[in-house]
Every structure is written in C-alpha cells, then in structure tokens.
C-alpha cells in the first residue's frame, strides 16, 4: 500500500504543481524519494515535529496548494490532535493526512505505535473524511481522489506492505463515499475495510465451503459512511458480519449496529473488532491481530463454522 501510494502520488505530482508532501522524520524511499529528488521545493521534512507538520499543511492548503502530510499513523493524529482538529478540520481545508500502518500493523513496536483507535478518532471530528482502502488498487483510486478533491480534510489510513490485490473482481469502480462489493454472494455479507479485508475474504471462503454464498464489501469510506448502502445490505442479507481492525468504541461495527436498530433490521449481525485494550505482545501483524481475537480461525469458530 505504501509503495502504491508513493507511485501514485509521484505520477500525480509530476503534472500537478499544487501537490506537496510534508513528512515528519520519514526517510523517503521509492517513489517518494524520486518525488523529493525531482521536486525538492515540494517535499518538506519537518523532522520529529508533528504539530508543525499539520499546522503548516493547513496554511499551505489555504494558499491554494494540495498538501499531503505523511507519517506513521499514530503520529499523524495522536500527537498533533489539536492541530488536526483546529487547523485542518475547523478551517475545513483540503489536506490529506496519510497514516501509515493503521491498526496494529507496527506489530513489534508496542502500543505506542498501534493506531488502533485512529478511525474512531478521525471519524469523530467535524468536517473530517476518513478513507481506508482494502488493497493497493483502492489505494491508487483513493490517492487520485484525494489529490483533486475540494471537500475538506481527509484521513487516509493505509497499511504498510505486502497487501494482495483483492478488488480485481469488484462489481463497481472505487467511488468516494460508496461501499463497494468485492465479491458477490447471497446468504452472508461481510463488511470490512483496510488490510484485514484479506482475512475477511478467507472467512468468506469458509462460508462458501460450508455452502453459504458470501459477499465481501469494502467499506473504504468510513466517513461519510454510506448509510443507505449499508442499510440495503442489512435488508438484503439474512446474515451480516463486520470484520475490522479498529477498537470497538466508535468503530464501523458500532455504527452498523446503530443503523440496524434505526432501520429495524432483522438479519443476524456479528461484529469483530480489536479489543479495547493495549496488547503487551510483539511478533507479526497476524500475531497481534490474533491476540486481539482476530484470526480467520477464531472468527470462524465464533461464527459456528469449521473449528481450527
């Protein structure tokens, strides 16, 4: 995802002189390094100083530029939270904050580097838009949209590396604010977003193996949430499952449950989120997710599918 973002940004930046990237102590690699080399005036590294990173992209946007602030997810939102709220969202400026390694992706670095509440926090701020693509192809589409949008601030939550393409057979193109069916089914629908979509697809395979045709839907835009699209899913499918890499409070799961209540949905609804806990373990991304209760086997067991 990181590389696809960089490639896309570089391509867009070559033709749009308004595009700038402001990073906070990130060593530019790949295409971002190429961008820096070719357009040094539009690549700014503030050092370990996230408050000014956010403050200055707000000022730059106000002068007609289209800046992207880019660093590890926790440092994009948590350290400079008031700048995000006051400088970007209150002033409602078209800036993209790119959070790398959302969720517990930085699995060996401890909870200081786990952005497990980032989506909830970002969604809670007025004017903020929140996007979490499911795969590199959605990263490209989302980056293209962010570079030209005039809507306001965006939090673009990315994974890191190695995410497979999962949207090749999607029934519709990526559209901001609209859910997107990645694979079609009739009996069960899994709502998901971000890199954990891979796990959602594996759970869908298990459902299918048990004879239940399963849809997988990318809820790539968490805010504004496609409430009508999700309401249609709740009305159409007898069983809806939410799988996400986000703490429970303020999660998609919570919002889908709220919507189900409002629309008097009668489907079965199961939700799987990170725990409302700091996990004091290390290891792989999968190890951390599993410690939070999120693995294909654990979810399948909870859903009454084949046990591990």
């Amino acid at each position: 995802m990181r590389n696809k973002f960089a490639e896309t940004f570089y391509e867009l930046g070559k033709v749009d002189p308004r595009l700038c990237v402001v990073v906070a102590d990130i060593s530019p690699a790949g295409s971002i390094a190429k961008f820096r080399q070719e357009f040094p005036g539009r690549f700014i590294n503030t050092g370990v100083a996230e408050q000014i990173m956010i403050g200055m992209v707000a000022g730059m946007a106000q002068r007609g530029l289209r800046p992207f602030a880019y660093t590890i997810a926790t440092f994009t939102l948590y350290r400079p939270f008031e700048m995000v709220r006051d400088d970007l969202c209150y002033q409602n400026l078209p800036v993209t904050i790119v959070g790398i390694g959302g969720g517990v992706n930085y699995s060996t670095l401890g909870a200081t580097h786990h952005a497990q509440e980032d989506v909830s926090i970002a969604c809670s701020i007025p004017n903020m838009n929140v996007i979490a693509p499911c795969d590199p192809a959605e990263v490209e589409a989302a980056t293209r949209w962010c570079a030209q949008q005039e809507v306001g601030p965006v939090y673009l939550r990315l994974g890191k590396a190695g995410e497979p393409v999962l949207s090749a057979n999607a029934t519709t193109p990526w559209t901001f604010g609209k859910i997107r069916t990645l694979r079609e089914g009739r009996d069960v629908c899994i709502l998901t977003y971000g890199p954990i979509t891979k796990m959602a697809c594996e759970v869908a395979d298990r459902f299918a193996a048990g004879g239940r045709s399963t849809s997988v839907v990318s809820v790539h835009t968490l805010k504004p949430l496609d409430r009508d699209g999700i309401a249609e899913v709740l009305a159409r499918f007898p069983h809806v499952v939410v799988i996400e890499e986000c703490a429970p409070n303020g999660s998609l799961s919570m919002r889908v449950k709220e919507l189900a209540w409002e629309r008097r949905a009668t489907c079965r609804l199961d939700t799987f989120t990170l725990k409302d806990e700091f996990i004091h373990c290390y290891g792989s991304h999968e190890d951390l997710l599993a410690e939070h209760g999120l693995s294909t086997n654990k979810i399948c067991v909870a859903l009454g599918l084949t046990s591990s």
Binding site: G55, G59, M60, Q62, G64
Partner: peptide, 10 residues
C-alpha cells in the same frame, strides 16, 4: 504560527 509558516511556504 504553524499556519503562518505553511502560508509563507505556500
């Protein structure tokens, strides 16, 4: 002041 730095750079 942070906003102003961004404006000056912009």
């Amino acid at each position: 002041i942070g906003l102003a730095v961004g404006m000056a750079l912009g």
